[in-house]
Design a protein around this nucleic acid. Structure first.
Length: 426
RNA sequence: GUGGGUGUAGCUCAGCUUGGUUAGAGCGUCUGGCUGUGGCCCAGAAGGUCGCGGGUUCAAAUCCCGUCACUCACCCCA
């Protein structure tokens, strides 16, 4: 029987793993510098956690959850990162120790939906959560970090769009005003928007249908409904962004899909990508901690889609950096009786931290040399009876074609000779 | 869930419109040219249930029907 990867999942072969590692490394460097620490929550949680946090009537909860029932309990593979991080934060009683904690996470999320380009059932996200504070500068920090990440990985020209959805009373008031506005124009809206009207009026604001867009453009702005306090918060976020020189366009059409968002919401887009331009989404969620049984503490975070980011990098024509050679030294075997000696030599060199490999397929010498090339080996050493007898061999620099005589017993010496000519670590 | 597209060698694809010897190319793999020194070049080889099932026909990769898989888009979202 031959199996395939399940629909909506993909294998990352070694070349692609390098691309992922590069993004993850960039994220870790950037986020640690800003005081965020990595947290690893389980890949699955009790289903109730997601229902509570994301919202019962969201698409994610209604039809996209990977759920497993076991002995009367229900578990769901995490469709997003925030809920688990907040749960972990509360479970470790961190709010009592020190309320403000800044976390980041990197890893796979799961949503049972129909796959398409850049959207899979298992996908990786890089996210941050600054838990335990209402400081608008943390909103600004999150936005700035997200945008900086894209610049750092070679995607200049990203566009930050921010908005405030208000909170509590003013958000309810705004919802009412939207229903009033769109309710009077239901006949002119597209079919899907008429359905959205019932489910989630906020979503009418970002319909792609041209007619709906022009209607939405005239809709009352959330910003006009904000209470004094929430307006102040939003202004403070904008001042924070200004202080670090981060441009952000206020866009009343930005409305996030998950229920827990309050006040600041934002997205990072790469406009040249068209309909699939969103690379990152985030915002503040000031009631979630309390909702999940903790103290009333605010929080803000974002999630970056790794796959969309990689697609963007490729579509921009920004080729990934060339893969480094897989081995530093290839030990070729000339004469079957030297196989173990070659194995031992590779081992001596490896112990000094230089990578070494040899043939395992009984290839001809020519075949071995071709293999060395394919592997991107920088050095070659051919080991035959003659070399074994003398205890010395010729180390060949494959890029220059030059050979140097080396002592075969001295793995460290060979290693340091190889390392001495190595490219600077990138 | 709805609507398009595509399934031919390990990979990327041509051939299908207008059915007709033995189904092709590039890349990759292997061998040799060059007994123990690579890349480039040259010669050659291996590698195919043409997704699967049925139908039409003297004859099907090609036309028709069904089916499965993959893929793209919509909804929604990273």
């Amino acid at each position: 029987m031959r199996c395939r990867a399940p629909r909506g999942t993909r294998d990352l072969l070694p070349a692609e793993v390098l691309e992922h590692e590069r993004l993850e490394r960039a994220a870790r460097d950037l986020l640690r510098t800003a005081g965020y620490r990595e947290i690893r929550a389980p890949l699955f949680e009790e289903t109730a956690l997601f229902v509570r946090s994301i919202g019962e009537s969201t698409d994610v909860v209604e039809k996209e959850m990977f759920t497993v029932e076991r002995e009367g309990a229900s578990y769901t593979f995490r469709p997003e990162g925030t809920a688990g991080v907040v749960r972990a934060y509360l479970e470790a009683n961190l709010p009592k120790e020190r309320p403000l904690q800044k976390f980041f996470y990197v890893g796979p999320m799961f949503r049972y939906e129909k796959p398409q380009k850049g959207r899979e059932r298992q996908f990786d996200q890089i996210g941050i959560e600054a838990l335990g504070s209402l400081d608008p500068l943390l909103d600004a920090e999150a936005i700035h970090l997200a945008a900086s990440f894209f610049e750092r990985v070679g995607l200049p020209g990203v566009e930050v769009r921010i908005n405030s959805m208000g909170d509590g009373a003013d958000r309810d008031a705004y919802r009412g005003r939207l229903r009033e506005y769109f309710g009077a124009r239901l006949g002119d809206l597209c079919e899907t928007c008429r359905a959205r009207f019932e489910r989630n009026v906020f979503r009418l604001l970002d319909c792609k249908n041209e007619r709906c867009r022009s209607i939405a453009a005239g809709a009352p702005s959330t910003l006009d409904s904000l209470s004094t306090e929430n307006r102040r918060h939003f202004e403070a976020v904008r001042r924070g962004l200004e202080a670090v020189g981060r441009k952000a366009a206020v866009d009343p059409q930005v409305v996030r899909g998950l229920d827990y968002y309050t006040r600041t919401v934002f997205e990072v887009h790469l406009p040249s990508l068209g309909a699939r331009s969103a690379l990152c989404g985030g915002g503040r969620y000031d009631h979630l901690i309390e909702e999940l049984g903790g103290p009333p503490l605010g929080a803000v975070g974002f999630a970056i889609g790794v796959t969309p980011t990689l697609l963007a990098i490729r579509e921009q024509g920004l080729a990934p950096p060339p893969a480094p050679g897989e081995v530093d030294l290839f030990v070729a075997i000339a004469g079957e009786e030297t196989r173990e000696a070659a194995f031992a030599l590779a081992d001596r060199v490896r112990r000094s931290g230089v990578s070494a490999d040899l043939d395992h397929e009984e290839k001809s010498l020519k075949g071995q040399l071709r293999l060395a090339n394919r592997l991107g080996a920088r050095f070659l050493l051919v080991l035959g009876p003659e070399e074994i007898g003398r205890g010395r061999g010729r180390l060949k620099d494959l890029s220059k074609g030059e050979e140097t005589e080396v002592d075969l017993g001295d793995g460290a010496g060979i290693a340091s000779r190889i390392r001495g000519t190595g490219p600077p670590p990138s």
